[in-house]
């Protein structure tokens, strides 16, 4: 789905300091990964404060043991983006559970050297997603719950 660049500029008008860079990256990455889209929502920080931030929300295709899975993720962009890394989460649906590990905590927060060593302009969303796809292909961050019931997960739009 093509992202309307004007709509995106408008979304980012609230406080994003490097809007042009951010618009360009999001346009680029959503062209490559069509199941991700920009959404404005309230992000809750560790101290309880909230701020309206842009997130890239949706799924990325991950190949694991020969099958492709659409892993649900949410990447929050701070208003200092791209000079700070996005805050990244895996977003399990009701039929999934988080598999904690080296790269994933119990809240679904994603930890990667790529994020830790983030430096604009060498680091960007496209590179990050490529790294995620490789890492998740080795260690999936979510698994399906062991149940025979089939239900479509509630997926937030």
């Amino acid at each position: 789905m093509a992202i309307n660049e004007n709509a995106l500029r408008k979304m980012l008008s609230k406080g994003y300091k490097y809007r042009d860079l951010t618009v360009r990256e999001i346009t680029n990455v959503t062209t490559q990964y069509k199941d991700l889209r920009p959404v404005m929502d309230n992000y809750v920080f560790n101290d309880g404060s909230t701020k309206e931030l842009l997130s890239l929300t949706g799924t990325v295709p991950v190949t694991y043991r020969g099958n492709i899975y659409n892993i649900p993720i949410c990447l929050w962009l701070l208003d200092s983006y791209p000079y700070n890394p996005p805050i990244c989460f895996v977003k399990p649906t009701s039929t999934m559970m988080i598999k904690t590990g080296k790269h994933i905590d119990a809240n679904g927060k994603i930890y990667l050297p790529y994020l830790h060593e983030w430096k604009h302009p060498q680091s960007d969303l496209f590179g990050l997603i490529q790294v995620m796809i490789v890492v998740f292909g080795e260690e999936p961050p979510v698994f399906s719950r062991p149940t025979t019931q089939t239900q479509y997960p509630a997926f937030q739009t």
């Binding site: 789905m1 698994f143 399906s144 997926f155």
Partner: peptide
Amino acid sequence: LNGGAVPSAPPTYT
């Protein structure tokens, strides 16, 4: 403005 793939995950190991 929906579309988007249905999220999926590998089956749990047994």
